[in-house]
Design a protein around this nucleic acid. Structure first.
Length: 811
RNA sequence: GCCGCGGUGGCGGAACUGGUAGACGCGCUGGACUUAAAAUCCAGUUGUAGCGAUACAGUGCGGGUUCGAUUCCCGCCCGCGGCACCA
């Protein structure tokens, strides 16, 4: 058993002292940028699941360096955010102090695992020299009209006493503390990400090396739907109800209209609504409902008819009643729907409850005259009772009817997106100040760029004010400033940015981390960008990865970067579950700490185990026995190295296997198939060990043996360095070139040919790899186990797969 | 409900483009070494029958295509992840 504590410490020290992981200059050699999603340094430190992705990228980066690439492999900290603030409040610390302590712990743990980051490029989102550029970008967005203020109601967490974006909710509960979220009006900064919806969708096609699953999640999130906007006139009023629908083909079945309660038409029509008290009551009820209650699918639909209001279907001039109901959302489409109970489940349910008429206008293709209304038919079909459009199929009907709307000035084709504008402010302390100034005379004025960064001020109390305002609002001498435009009295914006802000562009800053003139030097950016390989958790598939793509496209549009998409290749890492199969968490007491594993089994064993446990993307439960297996493998390698005795001639089979393994390991690392790479290494090590035990000397020469340590080195870097050194090398193994395999040596001379009869394997015979079908057939017919299946049968045909299989078909 | 992914021994998993299902590891059983244990080494380990050669069954379930299906097609069941009253 090798002493892991000793050698791991030794090599980590040497790597640090020699600057082994420093990035090369941005010129000459081909570059490779391997990036991990930077962590949020929480108070609990790393558990054994966090480094799984880091180990994978480390293996990848180490191999790329040995292959001669100029590798950029950096790490940093996503250090702003509510948990740090809460942790600090709980432990009576300043959030900065708490965050810095957490970062120190994370960094120590990361180094302990032997990860080869270039710490010269470390960045942290809380560094004013970093967030200066987050603020700068925000100002550029504002200049382009992409950042605006909004007073709409927001999600309010009564426990955290702070506003939350929809993205911070989980099932209508506060993602951080679990409280039920209420609605509260609040002034917010919002970013017009919807302007980029179509590009964010279209450009997914330019990312062939992204996993399809993640692209599909983004498509759903963006949620493009093509349809029509239709104007329903309100009879006796000078108003119009605009509805959005993807099913204009069903419009002859429209029997009523539903408005969202918040739709401004409701208030506009107040004078004409005869049952206003009833309506008002319903409005009040809805207002108090949280998103959770409103979006509960199991909830029975409710609504109120607007008496005295009648809308006119533009296609047949038919008058239909108008309702308000909270199942219609004001934020999507136009905040109004045409209800077609015969062809929409929700409308069907609502019509059943309020006994509204149901009229069929689309029949299934299989029964085009079917007018029955016993159930809701939501699929496409053939139009019936639809005037001049009757008889058309749904698809062409939609085209013709949309054209009709446009020609008659009663509507138009319309594309809707589910994605909403991005609420970009938080009423809390621990975030980047939004660099804006409010002047009574000039309105909103950005802080002059020469005055950036707007440094987060020290504050006596960073606890939530409880009023909803940021604690910054209490620092009057910070808040009160002169208006940069008119010089008059003005106030600073006191909201701060969300955690997502700083994490949108950090990968650019690693390229040029100390630049004080610009966000990133464009020449350096041209060389290093885009990120060649990005690895992180699937939970970021939509939010972080959409925000970052948006942010990057904006920077591209203003000429700050060279490429339109930031990440060429993307893979997600599967969770490491607790030994009990549940998510690792304090709550279940199933957390495994990497410090303990590094102490007991060693960092190399941890690395090998986490890569061997299964496919990279898959969530797999931790198993300490499996870890022991990984350690045994490393011990075996150590013994194999120590027992090296040069052979007089090399064993052909072993040499061939070595070269096959070089090929396989190289290809598997490229594909992130680490489990099969390690399996191949185990097979080779087993073979070489057996040979040694049986013959008393090694199977292959020292020169070839060195290749084994080289292909092992990305997985177990400390042990590989140690062995490399024992074989007399002064320089690091990672300075040596990745070995090439010899294509001649991996060719097999002999092959095991499977002989099957009628598709059922009956024998395996060893033959020359290039054996011809006729020769194989002769050998097969001589084989006793095959013979008995051929007796008395007539051979119909043979199927021959060279070097693999001969199937004899008999009758 | 919709979208995506998956279902293989006691366990984690492997299987190229349709070609010997169960590589590799863990666990377990038996043996060697040892006073003993650990470590290490050797043998075995899908099920059923058989001393064995071998035969039959077998990759969630039911069909289909094929000389041949874990792999392709149709219809289900179950699990995981994401989105969700999106008009």
């Amino acid at each position: 058993m090798y002493n892991h504590q000793e050698i791991e410490k030794k090599w980590q020290k040497i790597w640090a002292e020699t600057g082994a992981h420093k990035t090369g200059e941005a010129k000459g050699r081909p570059k490779y940028y391997v990036l991990d999603m930077f962590p949020y340094p929480s108070g609990t430190g790393l558990h054994v699941g966090h480094p799984k992705g880091y180990i994978a990228t480390d293996i990848f980066a180490r191999q790329k360096r040995m292959q001669g690439y100029n590798v950029l492999h950096p790490m940093g900290w996503d250090a702003f955010g509510l948990p740090a603030e809460n942790y600090a409040i709980k432990n009576k610390l300043h959030p900065r102090q708490a965050t810095e302590e957490n970062i120190a712990t994370y960094k120590r743990q990361i180094n302990m695992i032997g990860l080869s980051y270039d710490w010269d490029r470390e960045i942290s989102t809380i560094d004013p020299q970093y967030y200066k550029w987050t603020q700068w970008t925000f100002i550029q967005m504002w200049k382009k009209g992409l950042a605006y203020e909004s007073y709409e109601p927001i999600n309010w967490c009564p426990s955290c006493k702070t506003g939350l974006a929809n993205e911070d909710l989980e099932d209508g509960l506060c993602e951080r503390c679990g409280s039920v979220v209420e609605q509260k009006p609040m002034r917010q900064w919002v970013i017009r990400i919807t302007d980029y919806a179509q590009r964010l969708l279209d450009d997914l096609e330019k990312l062939p090396e992204w996993e399809e699953t993640i692209k599909e999640m983004q498509r759903n999130w963006i949620g493009r739907s093509e349809g029509a906007e239709i104007n329903f006139a309100i009879s006796g009023a000078d108003k119009m109800i605009k509805v959005f629908t993807t099913r204009v083909d069903t419009i002859f079945g429209c029997t009523y209209i539903v408005l969202a309660p918040e739709n401004e038409l409701v208030a506009d029509l107040k004078d004409k609504i005869k049952n206003w008290p009833e309506v008002e009551k319903y409005l009040a009820e809805t207002k108090n409902k949280t998103d959770l209650q409103r979006t509960d699918l199991n909830k029975e639909k409710s609504g109120v008819v607007l008496k005295g209001i009648v809308a006119v279907n533009p296609f047949n001039n038919e008058e239909v009643p108008v309702f308000i109901a909270d199942y219609v959302l004001n934020l999507y489409g136009t905040g109004a729907v045409m209800a077609v109970p015969a062809h929409d489940e929700r409308d069907w349910e609502f019509a059943q409850k309020y006994d509204l008429s149901i009229r069929k206008s689309v029949a299934p293709l299989s029964n085009p005259r079917d007018e029955s209304t016993e159930s809701c038919y939501a699929d496409d079909g053939v139009l019936l009772s639809s005037g001049e459009f009757s008889g058309l199929d749904s698809v062409s009907a939609r085209l013709k009817m949309t054209a009709w709307l446009a020609n008659n000035n009663k509507g138009a084709k319309k594309i809707n997106y589910k994605i909403k504008d991005w609420v970009f402010s938080r009423q809390r302390y621990w975030g980047e100040p939004i660099p804006m100034i409010h002047c009574a005379k000039c309105g909103v004025v950005p802080v002059p760029e020469s005055e950036l960064p707007v440094v987060l001020p020290e504050v006596k109390s960073y606890e939530p004010t409880g009023t909803g305002e940021s604690p910054l609002a209490a620092i009057t001498d910070w808040v009160n400033v002169k208006c940069p435009k008119c010089g008059g009295p003005a106030q600073r914006e006191t909201n701060t940015m969300p955690q997502w802000g700083g994490s949108c562009w950090y990968y650019l800053r690693y390229i040029d981390p100390k630049n004080d003139r610009e966000l990133v030097d464009k020449k350096l950016e041209k060389y290093w960008s885009p990120v060649d390989f990005y690895v992180g958790g699937a939970e970021h598939a939509t939010r972080h990865l959409i925000y970052a793509r948006f942010w990057h496209k904006f920077l591209f549009d203003i000429g700050a970067v060279n490429y339109e998409e930031p990440f060429t290749k993307l893979r997600h890492v599967g969770l490491v579950m607790g030994e009990d199969g549940r998510k690792m968490s304090k709550r279940w007491g199933n957390v495994i700490n990497p410090d303990d594993i590094a102490a007991s089994h060693g960092a190399d064993a941890l690395r090998v185990y986490e890569m061997f446990m299964g496919p990279f993307e898959q969530a797999i439960a931790w198993n300490t026995n499996g870890l022991t297996g990984a350690r045994k493998f490393l011990d075996k390698i150590d013994r194999l190295a120590a027992a090296f005795v040069a052979p007089s001639t090399e064993d052909e089979e072993s040499l061939s296997l070595l070269h096959k393994t070089i090929k396989k390991v190289g290809e598997d690392i490229e594909k992130f198939n680490f489990n099969t790479a390690i399996s191949a290494l185990m097979i080779l090590v087993n073979k070489l060990t057996d040979y040694n035990n049986q013959s008393g000397h090694s199977a292959i020469s020292q020169e070839n043996f060195l290749h084994l340590w080289q292909i092992l080195s990305p997985f177990a870097p400390h042990l590989a360095e140690e062995i490399w050194e024992k074989f007399g090398h002064k320089d690091s193994i990672f300075k040596s070139p990745w070995p090439a395999y010899d294509p001649e040596l991996i060719k097999d001379k002999m092959a095991n040919l499977v002989i099957s009869v009628n598709g059922k394997a009956r024998a395996t015979i060893e033959v020359e790899a290039d054996i011809k079908e006729v020769e194989a057939l002769v050998l097969a017919q001589e084989n006793i186990n095959v013979k008995k299946w051929l007796e008395g049968k007539e051979i119909v045909k043979n199927i021959f797969v060279p070097g693999k299989l001969l199937n004899i078909v008999v009758k």
